[in-house]
C-alpha cells in the first residue's frame, strides 16, 4: 500500500497536479501563532485546552499550546484557534 501510494504521488507530481487532493495527504496550515488549520483529517483523537491530537492518513498531528479551541470542524478541515507553541507529526506505519 505504501509503495502504491508513493507511485501515485510520483505520477501526480509528474503532471504538476496538487498531490493532496487525490492522495488525501493532510495539510497543516499555521497562521501566526493564533490559528492552525488541518485539512484532510480523519477526526480528533483527543481535545483539551493545551493539547489537540488530530488523526490523519499519515499519522497523528499533535498540536500543543494554550487556550486551544475548535473554531470550525467539518469533514475536511479542523480549524483551531488559540496560542500554538508546538506542532508535531507522529507518523504511523502506512
Amino acid at each position: 500500500m505504501g509503495q502504491a501510494r508513493r507511485q501515485l504521488e510520483h505520477w501526480i507530481r509528474a503532471i504538476d497536479f496538487p498531490t493532496e487532493i487525490l492522495t488525501g495527504i493532510p495539510t497543516v496550515q499555521i497562521k501566526g501563532r493564533d490559528e492552525t488549520v488541518v485539512v484532510q483529517h480523519r477526526g480528533i483523537l483527543s481535545y483539551s485546552d493545551d493539547a489537540v491530537d488530530v488523526a490523519s492518513s499519515i499519522g497523528v498531528v499533535r498540536i500543543r499550546g494554550a487556550g486551544l479551541k475548535i473554531r470550525l470542524m467539518n469533514r475536511e478541515r479542523v480549524c483551531l484557534c488559540g496560542k500554538v507553541s508546538r506542532v508535531e507529526l507522529e507518523e504511523s506505519p502506512v
Binding site: 483539551s48 479551541k69 475548535i70 470550525l72 470542524m73 467539518n74
Partner: peptide
C-alpha cells in the same frame, strides 16, 4: 471519548461551535 462524538458530528454535517471540554 466525547471527541468521537465531535468527529461524528463533523462527518455527518452536524454543525457545532464553541466546544468546551
Amino acid at each position: 471519548e466525547p471527541e468521537r462524538c465531535l468527529n461524528m458530528f463533523a462527518a455527518c454535517d452536524v454543525a457545532f461551535w464553541a466546544p468546551e471540554k
